[in-house]
């Protein structure tokens, strides 16, 4: 029996193929961007510490990451005896997929977005909440106390800081009345939300640092206490998948910050994509700067800071925003 394919089914199939092509293009962009960011981080850290950083491979070591990737690909695949095979193998994949999925709703420029969801912001928070599962799987699957402790720390931190993160974003949603990323960008034609909502921006940025497990919130992989945290047992390609996920996460939180608070793609003269990428990479540079200049928080300080300072402050900010909206009416 033959199936007849009607025109609308053809349209569906073409749209499906087009979506796949967009996703593949995005994947290529993300990999290139991560390669650049790893080199950039090494250079930034080196110059902050009065060193040179990688200098040998390419101009100022710009091809160093490619050489490192080839080395990681060729490494022996080491799997310790007590690992839980399923969790151990799937964990890097889950981490990376959770880091990559939010890209679908991030507008890179006007009309340059994979899928312009009405519920874009909610989608981003929903899919990025899956990242914790990958951390758990890695920590538990490694069958190693350091990994387990690292995973517990990382996930406790991610869960705690997710609350002020979402609360700070809520005030932006209240001001625009929409969860659509494009609409939120367009609402900032006059003034960026970073200026009209400075407290929300600060709360978001601090929580984002903690969400990505970056210093000063990197107790989850504190070298002096935990070897390397939840990815202690990983090597070769699986290790580089975690690295890829970490830098992709940095890009995602900075892209959300640029979209929600810094006016997204909007800017004078130059094309939108340039402004968007400039804002994103500036925020990532800020994250690197903070990482290499501040010491690490202690565990109890970290939790106290989230629950006793950031969460109440975020609630107050929401209250103030609501009052402002009511009085304006």
């Amino acid at each position: 029996m033959m199936f007849k394919i009607s025109p609308e089914n053809w349209a569906f199939l073409i749209e499906f193929a087009w979506l796949c092509a967009k996703a593949a293009g995005l994947l290529g962009f993300v990999s290139l961007s991560v390669m650049f960011l790893i080199w950039w981080e090494r250079k930034v850290s080196a110059h902050i510490q009065s060193r040179l950083g990688p200098m040998r491979v390419g101009w100022h070591g710009c091809l160093q990451t490619i050489a490192d990737t080839i080395k990681l690909l060729l490494k022996e695949n080491i799997v310790a005896k007590d690992t839980d095979k399923v969790s151990f193998w799937l964990a890097p994949l889950v981490s990376f997929v959770a880091a990559f999925l939010p890209f679908a709703a991030i507008p890179f420029a006007k009309n340059l977005v994979v899928q312009d969801f009405g519920l874009g912001l909610l989608y981003i928070f929903a899919v990025s909440s899956l990242g914790v599962i990958g951390v758990f799987m890695a920590g538990w699957g490694s069958g190693n106390k350091y990994s387990l402790l690292g995973a517990m720390r990382a996930s406790a931190q991610i869960i705690s800081y997710e609350i002020p993160l979402v609360l700070s974003v809520l005030s932006i949603v209240m001001l625009t009345g929409s969860l659509n990323m494009t609409k939120i960008v367009e609402a900032q034609g006059q003034v960026w939300f970073a200026f009209s909502q400075p407290i929300a921006f600060l709360i978001y940025f601090i929580s984002a640092l903690a969400e990505t497990n970056r210093a000063p919130f990197d107790i989850s992989e504190a070298e002096s206490e935990l070897v390397a945290g939840f990815h202690t047992e990983y090597s070769g390609m699986k290790f580089s998948m975690f690295f890829l996920a970490e830098y992709t996460n940095m890009f995602v939180v900075s892209a959300i910050a640029a979209t929600l608070f810094l006016g997204g793609w909007q800017g004078p003269f130059l094309p939108g994509i340039f402004w968007f990428l400039a804002k994103v990479y500036f925020l990532i540079f800020l994250m690197m700067w903070i990482r290499w200049t501040f010491p690490r928080f202690r565990v109890d300080q970290l939790m106290n800071f989230a629950w006793k300072f950031l969460v109440p402050l975020a609630f107050l900010n929401i209250l103030a925003t609501a009052l402002f909206l009511v009085l304006k009416k």
């Binding site: 929903a126 517990m152 406790a156």
Partner: peptide, 26 residues
């Protein structure tokens, strides 16, 4: 029902299952 789907992921997978796994690991 996209809204329901996203809330399902956010609450059940993101929050409740995370707590369940926490309990198991502890």
């Amino acid at each position: 029902a996209e809204f329901l789907a996203l809330v399902q992921i956010l609450i059940y997978v993101g929050a409740i299952m995370t707590l369940v796994i926490f309990a198991i690991m502890l």
